[in-house]
Nucleic acid binder design. Sequence first.
DNA 1: GTTTTATTTGTGCACGAGCACAATGTGGCT
DNA 2: AGCCACATTGTGCTCGTGCACAAATAAAAC
Lengths: 351, 351
Amino acid sequence: MDTKKTSYTIKEIAEMAQVSRATVDRVIHGRGTVSKKAYDKIKYILDKIDYKPNIVAQTLRKGELFKVAVLMPDSDFDVYWKRAIDGINKVVEELSFIGVSVDLHLFNPFKEISFNHHAKQILKGGYSGVLVAPVFYSEAVAFLNECKKLSLPMVTFNTHIKDDNVLCHVGQDLEKSGRTAAALLAKLLKAGDEYLLVHIDEDIHNAKHIQEKEDGFLDYFSESGGRNPNIHTLKIEDTKELEKRLLGVLDDHPEIKGIFVSTSKVYYVAELVHSYNLNVHVLGYDLIKENVDFLNSGHIDFIIYQNPGLQASTAISLLLDHLAFKKEIPKLKYLPIEIAIKENYMDYITD
Amino acid sequence: MDTKKTSYTIKEIAEMAQVSRATVDRVIHGRGTVSKKAYDKIKYILDKIDYKPNIVAQTLRKGELFKVAVLMPDSDFDVYWKRAIDGINKVVEELSFIGVSVDLHLFNPFKEISFNHHAKQILKGGYSGVLVAPVFYSEAVAFLNECKKLSLPMVTFNTHIKDDNVLCHVGQDLEKSGRTAAALLAKLLKAGDEYLLVHIDEDIHNAKHIQEKEDGFLDYFSESGGRNPNIHTLKIEDTKELEKRLLGVLDDHPEIKGIFVSTSKVYYVAELVHSYNLNVHVLGYDLIKENVDFLNSGHIDFIIYQNPGLQASTAISLLLDHLAFKKEIPKLKYLPIEIAIKENYMDYITD
DNA sequence: GTTTTATTTGTGCACGAGCACAATGTGGCT
DNA sequence: AGCCACATTGTGCTCGTGCACAAATAAAAC
């Protein structure tokens, strides 16, 4: 219906400015030498018409247009990342025909040095953009600064590092995620019941991550007016300690009827609920195999799904929107907090 | 890493067959005349190497490659469809540079004649594919048969018509969706509580749609071993009847503590729950404004979200995968049954 | 065998961008 | 003017496909 001019071609611009195509090309790319008179005339036209190169023609001409690097954990160390890798490959496959190529740099998520090693490689790889899952905070910030020097645009996903140099972050609103967890458990429990918040993680770097979820969880109750149940907290850094400490807390506080595990390690808790036939409701994160099994057996009531596949594919799409299509992209993109139960989880993990 | 040959070019094929590019072109497109000898030789090579044309070059050459028609309800009559339209526009915007154009044919979802009118238009529009929300069953089947005659591939979304001529359907597994509804309500209710199933719809054509949800809901309880609560049913075709009949049932069966509304009209029920301060849990479909308001006020506990935007964008992506990229696409694509509560619905409806 | 007609095959250009190379123009210096 | 250095601009080809048109070959008619 609206027949707005798609975009001008270099040839058309050249005719307007009464110069040759090559001169226009020189102004656009700032290479070679152009007389001030010609430069001004062409620049004026370019600004006025908002010239955007024809990606199709560009892609046909040069084989590869953009090379982007992905820096994220290797799923061999943590299966959580498997779907993220799949999500990236799916998008890349669909967009490879516009000359996009992606190199996966997979690091060991338990070793900072592995992250740094791959980061260094990326810096000298000649990329036009990077996608990072910045699980190591300070290392990621250092890498980000290096990227800035090379004016390499960076998009992050999964873990949020609040830094203005990040072009865009894709993830979940963790505070809201904790709040959702609280609301779900509250639906199952009665007034007077108590809650237990369990943090299970061997890695310290997740501290902030986890803190936000806890804040959201607590805020839900403090804001929900009046009803302020007893909420207990357990921090487990070594899973071997879990059994003794969890049983201890539950023994001391028999009114605990809901357990919120702030990480994907919720299956450790579910295992104990199963073994000791505990009368509590359990909620945790991520649809990894172990958790799915306990969803099915009924020992986990709800799983909050971060949808790493969608996160990764959204993130890379946005990066390419920026690189290839020069589109404006948001600084922050929150994806839905997806609630999975036994009856609906299937559709999330089958493609 | 894997440097597999992307695809052969016509020029390369021509050299292999020792003919000119044009002859290869003639075999590929089946136009003009080609000697049997040349035809056989070229055909043999084509089959062996699985030639796929370079879409980039094709797009550069011809401005518009594919024209697809979308036949769906106008959101002016039912806001539910607003997000579907947005979802389609988003995909088209991203893919317009590969020469895809989309015409929206929006019909009045309360008038079969409007559907037929637009369907007829599409048949003589010279399209290469159609995307349909087949809310009118028999009309849709008739249209499908016409499309088949023109070998126009059709993808459907939202409403499922089981017909082998449909290239692909994108939607929710309604049986599972009803089952999920049951499971959620069951989490809130106690043993001994009774359930009420309410169907509210002015249009008869949704009958099958709704029946599947009901089946799922009932199956959940009959399969969950032992516990078989009383489940009452209410069919409302005129919303004016709702108040009297709902209050009547609740009066007769005070043990009803959970109401499952199988359509997006759940806000009618929530309104009554609010007015009469009824002590029941309510679950229904779709994040339309009215329902969101009652989620916020606490009169609706859960909303199952069909995500029409995602349905539509997935559907059109698949159609274009088929048309443009000659990719194999599934006959059926179920999207997640998304569970929304007051705390997490926001991320679903903001983009 | 020659001309006419039908069949089959090949060449060249366009799409838009990018870049190598060639071709102008401008100034200084002898 | 003649010559060289350097600044500035223009031409022509490539990428792969599709199609108009021309050219070559084969078959039929005289």
